[in-house]
Design a protein around this nucleic acid. Structure first.
Lengths: 330, 330
DNA sequence: TTGTAGGCGTTATCAC
DNA sequence: GTGATAACGCCTACAA
């Protein structure tokens, strides 16, 4: 592999001039430029980024922290992050934490070791102490799930409003006994969506019934189990709002297994609009977050922060959309 | 941020000694070691990997090339790759090609620029010329889909045998009119799975009928469309083998929309065992590839190759499993 | 067992 | 516009 020095020799100029051509910043005579370009071609020279990175003290890598890549919810967000990153000459380092703070630490070390220039965290289970320590020392953006106290910029949607609209939709088509399948309320989004659910009910003078609310883990089986339990203890239930599609899909399976029909007997609304929502039978009514946009926005915010560490980055609240499909259509 | 030099000064030793402690390779007196360790703690020193990487001429990054992260098929494989990578002190660079060779090139440049030490390609659409050029010059492993001619190591399952077993299963429960929904036969796996399908039929003296075979793109909608077409032109059809779960799931949707039942009227077998296969109704019979293992194996092979560029790496053929679920149970 | 010093490949600061 | 040259932070002969 040729080095800048060999190129300089071949072109009959100094390494400085070659570097100038490479970065094509400071002015170079047309003559020198041509000689250098020819030499580069001839030697098939490719700059060694290890040298450049050391010199510039940057890695041009971005950490994307997520609990698990197998959650389809993250796919489009990551796509957005990647597209913007590539556009700006950054690479994306994939970091699955499996919600283990030890893995998290490992990845945060990359920052300290200069192997990454900043972080976008999609991980709601992130350790608060870590977040505090890292979030103020390094460029850091929280994505979808965030901690309000810490003054670390985030991008998200208005979760409360979105949940409100979802439940409102159920009410508007005549439902009154509406269950809530929620995830763990240690997550901010879970608390916010519950608030939205409650507000919609109260606004329509529907009594909020503790027996209609249930919390569970964030996967298909848990959603199924939760629904089974709800069916057992609530005979008059006619609709369900699940705070995640994957829970809603589990719920639908449980409803079918109990020999009820969706939506005829029980209507179901999810949240996220994962691709699967449109593939199952019946297709799922859900809240669509602008995933790709969220990813793009987060990445843009991060790069801005990397480029100017002292700048204050404003939070972004993006829009959402209620998508009505078969699971709530009579 | 402290440097190795400051640590040396603080500890009252030379930078060489600090480096020795850091890499804890060559012998250091217990006395010196303790002084250095204290200094490191005191200064909160973290080695700057940019310096180390330049010196060692390695990046400790692995490229994982995939067409799209939103294909759930890849999730576990990537998990496997990541786990082994982290274990060996490598980072995984996520590379979505969107099946564009221009993006591919971009990522391959990272190799030339020393920003990545090797590649695992999960992308069946990879450009053959690129593959040839890069695959012989840099550590490269092909994963799941591969090119046989090029003498680049790969890890995969026996696709032909797996398809054979899948179709055999349909035959064994009494089906004779079995359709094949295949993807584009420019892909090796598509050709191999078709071979398996044909072999199973022939072995049981079932006539191979061109009208029962159809090719389409690799997504839900395409599977649905393909099935619709099959239903239109084949009245006696009682079973379908789709070479990917996502196609099978599309097919099931089409079957239901045509008011047939699965499996009572038409049985369906997929391929991949993506998580969704077990969530839909009816749950899908499918071939499970050992995804996580595939990822681990690929990554181990790659690291071996990186560590010893002259070593010849043997291909790996892993096992698979036929998982029988509701979609083929009467 | 330890220290000195050179070099990895770039970029940036100076003079000219 | 251009060329020397000193960093960037680390590792590793080589010498002691």
């Amino acid at each position: 592999m040729a080095t800048i020095e060999e190129v300089a020799k071949e072109a009959g100029v100094s390494v400085a001039t070659v570097s100038r051509v490479l970065n094509n910043k400071s002015p170079v005579s047309i003559n020198a430029r041509i000689k250098v370009e020819n030499a580069i071609k001839k030697l098939k020279y490719e700059p060694n980024m290890l040298g450049r990175n050391l010199r510039r003290s940057e890695s041009r890598m971005i950490l994307a922290l997520l609990p698990s890549i197998s959650n389809p919810f993250y796919a489009s967000i990551i796509q957005g992050i990647e597209d913007i990153a590539v556009e700006n000459n950054y690479g994306v380092l994939l970091c699955e934490t499996s919600s283990k703070s030890e893995r998290e630490m490992l990845y945060f070390n990359l920052l300290k070791q200069k192997l990454a220039d900043g972080v976008i965290s999609l991980d709601p289970t992130i350790d608060k102490n870590n977040l505090k320590e890292i979030g103020i020392r390094y460029p850091f953006i929280q994505c979808c799930e965030y901690d309000e106290d810490l003054n670390i910029p985030y991008v998200a949607i208005d979760n409360k409003l979105a949940a409100y609209k979802a439940v409102k939709h159920l009410i508007s088509i005549g439902h009154k006994n509406i269950a809530l399948i929620n995830s763990d309320e240690k997550f901010l989004y879970a608390r916010l969506r519950k608030e939205g659910y409650i507000e919609a009910l109260q606004e329509n003078n529907i009594e909020v019934d503790e027996k209609l609310m249930i919390n569970c883990d964030l996967d298909f089986e848990s959603g199924k189990k939760a629904m089974k339990q709800l069916l057992k203890s609530n005979e008059s239930l006619t609709a369900v709002f699940a705070v995640a599609d994957i829970l809603a899909i589990g719920a639908i399976k449980a409803i079918k297994e109990a020999n009820y029909r969706v939506p005829d007997d029980i209507a179901v609304v999810g949240f996220d609009n994962i691709p699967m929502a449109n593939m199952i039978d019946p297709a799922l009514t859900t809240i669509a977050q602008p995933m790709y946009q969220i990813g793009c926005t987060a990445c843009k915010m991060l790069i801005k922060k990397i480029n100017n560490k002292d700048e204050t980055i404003e939070n972004s609240i993006l829009g959402f959309e209620l998508i009505i499909r078969e699971s709530t259509m009579k």
